[in-house]
């Protein structure tokens, strides 16, 4: 990589950092100052504005794992393997945040920390699948075997989501029905200010995802570079 390209990349990175920071700040202002308090649930409902974006982000991250896994098996390019790995890690982090904020919301509203509600349960299973994915990666040595196995699991795991969804839904559900998309159309069930805040928050979190991806991918590439140099050193000495 020539130095110019590096600098350019860093500049892009900086813009993304500022944009994300600004977006998150705006979202915070929206959540705590702008948006009115919901009538039935009270102030606790404000958790929703980052609970839902976290869930969206982790789901999006797992989708990226799925796509990158397919592309990896097709192209056999280490690049896709790095993306899948990075995305799975970020997805698990945000999935954990969903699993933490969910019970904090449920405690005052449902009166119990954990209820075997459909969406909470599916999130937990999803979390387990991708933790297993990361464990699989940690268990095997670097090389094409690890990448191929992880890719297969990335595909198998994502295809499981519809099955989890329906099985858990038919099993039982208590979760508040999605208010953003109802039968009447998008956004009918919510106050416009709430919708705007949620949208802003979703946007800021999506930016955050790309920011984190950049860092994670850079980390993997640095590790690769160090490995390469070490190998070179080993053979030349």
């Amino acid at each position: 990589m020539n130095p110019d390209a590096v600098e350019e990349k860093q500049e892009e990175g900086n813009i993304l950092v500022w944009l994300t920071g600004f977006g998150l700040l705006m979202a915070m202002i929206g959540i705590f100052i702008y948006v009115p308090t919901e009538r039935t649930e009270g102030v606790i409902q404000r958790i929703m504005y980052f609970h839902v974006p976290c869930a969206w982000l982790s789901f999006f991250a797992f989708f990226v794992v799925f796509i990158c896994s397919i592309l990896f098996l097709w192209k056999k390019d280490r690049e896709w393997d790095i993306y899948a790995h990075a995305s799975a890690g970020i997805g698990v982090v945000f999935c954990s945040l969903v699993l933490i904020t969910g019970p904090i919301w449920a405690r005052p509203i449902w009166g119990a920390w954990w209820v075997w509600d459909a969406r909470l349960t599916s999130t937990l299973i999803l979390w387990l699948i991708y933790v297993a994915y990361l464990m699989l990666r940690a268990q095997s040595d670097a090389g094409s075997m690890r990448a191929r196995y992880a890719a297969v699991l990335g595909i198998v795991g994502f295809l499981n989501i519809p099955f989890i969804h329906f099985s858990v839904l038919w099993w039982r559900t208590f979760h508040p029905q999605p208010k953003v998309i109802t039968n009447e159309g998008i956004g009918k069930g919510m106050d416009p200010s709430m919708l705007a805040t949620l949208g802003l928050s979703l946007f800021a979190f999506t930016l955050l995802y790309f920011l984190l991806m950049g860092e994670r991918v850079r980390q993997e590439k640095l590790k690769d570079e160090i490995d390469r140099l070490k190998r070179e050193k080993l053979y030349s000495s």
Partner: peptide, 8 residues
């Protein structure tokens, strides 16, 4: 429920 909101 400010406590819960804060914790979250």
């Amino acid at each position: 429920n400010l406590g819960f909101l804060f914790a979250a």
